[in-house]
């Protein structure tokens, strides 16, 4: 199947500053993909280039099989997008804004406007002026605008920025529903790693304009070290530490208030446990720490920073 997004050798300079350097990534179809990177990594610039808001750059871009910029218009016919904060006409109501912006697509039925307004939970604000909307409502109307024409791909830039925790949960539910019910692939940039981990099954990580990593979230997490909390009697902590460091070189050990934190390759926990018991050390508990995207992200971006620094 055609990739949702394919970026090859993307370079972009703002004056002398190199913002993107041979950026490349491929977002598979039917995924909810996260686009991660620290501040200034070049995420918004990449999205703006993809959507034609920045016309000058070097590189090859494809979205849903359409070459950008040659087939930009036909690509946008199948793509919904909101970059940064959505800004609609303040003096017009939610319905009016969707009607006028929606009329610029090939097909638009009034029933669809009501359907998307209801889908994003703005039914009560249908006739309310956009100028009176809260940040969360504005973001939700942005998503409504993005899915108005039933796109195959929805591109969102920081869709939950400025929203409270309840609003974020709601937005996550909306996006999951869009993906499941309307079969829309989603590509969203976000700073909130926890949110991306909960919502996305694919992730692209960039830093300083360079692709650091990309892949399915499950694969990415599996490649990182497992973390285990080892609870021990206080007197035996030092002995256990010595034993573990002799046992395996790949295990990193750090102190915790009532034991040790072990970071080790997958599958070693049972062996560690049995060695400790054999040495007569009482293991009160061996608790797995769920791997988080945050750790992977920090590790990957700091690695790329080190490389960048030494280069």
């Amino acid at each position: 199947m055609t990739a949702a997004i394919k970026v090859t050798g993307l370079n972009k300079n703002f004056g002398r500053k190199k913002v993107l350097q041979s950026l490349h990534f491929t977002v598979p179809p039917d995924t909810i993909a996260g686009f991660l990177g620290p501040n200034g990594a070049g995420k918004t610039t990449t999205l703006r280039i993809l959507l034609g808001l920045i016309p000058s750059y070097q590189g090859n871009l494809e979205m849903l099989g359409c070459n950008i910029p040659a087939q930009r218009v036909s690509a946008l016919e199948q793509i919904g997008a909101v970059v940064e904060n959505p800004t609609f006409i303040e003096t017009m109501s939610a319905y009016e804004n969707l009607y006028w912006f929606g009329s610029l697509y090939k097909t638009l039925l009034p029933a669809r406007i009501n359907e998307v307004i209801e889908m994003v939970g703005l039914k009560d604000a249908t006739n309310q002026r956009f100028g009176t909307f809260s940040t969360g409502m504005k973001q939700r109307l942005g998503v409504a605008f993005g899915i108005l024409h039933k796109p195959r791909l929805l591109i969102l830039d920081e869709p939950t920025s400025g929203m409270d925790p309840a609003g974020r949960v709601h937005m996550r539910e909306i996006l999951r529903r869009i993906h499941d019910e309307e079969k829309t692939s989603i590509f969203l940039s976000s700073h909130l790693l926890d949110e991306v981990q909960r919502l996305c099954n694919y992730v692209v990580i960039i830093d300083k304009g360079v692709t650091v990593s990309e892949g399915f979230v499950a694969d990415l997490l599996a490649s990182t070290l497992e973390k285990w909390e080892l609870r021990l009697v206080d007197e035996e902590i030092d002995r256990a530490r010595g034993l573990i460091s002799r046992l395996e070189k790949n295990i990193s050990v750090s102190n915790l208030p009532r034991g040790l934190l072990l970071a080790m390759p997958a599958g070693l926990s049972a062996q560690v446990n049995s060695e400790l018991v054999r040495a007569g050390i009482k293991v009160n508990a061996l608790i797995p720490h769920e791997a988080s995207l945050e750790e992977t992200f920090i590790k990957l971006t700091s690695d790329s920073g080190d490389k960048g620094g030494s280069a």
Binding site: L51, L53, V73, V83, E84, F88, F101, L104, Y105, F145
Partner: peptide
């Protein structure tokens, strides 16, 4: 205000 950005996200030249 960002209206131009919203307009250019629609399929028009």
């Amino acid at each position: 205000r960002g209206y131009m950005k919203m307009l250019l996200l629609t399929p028009i030249n």
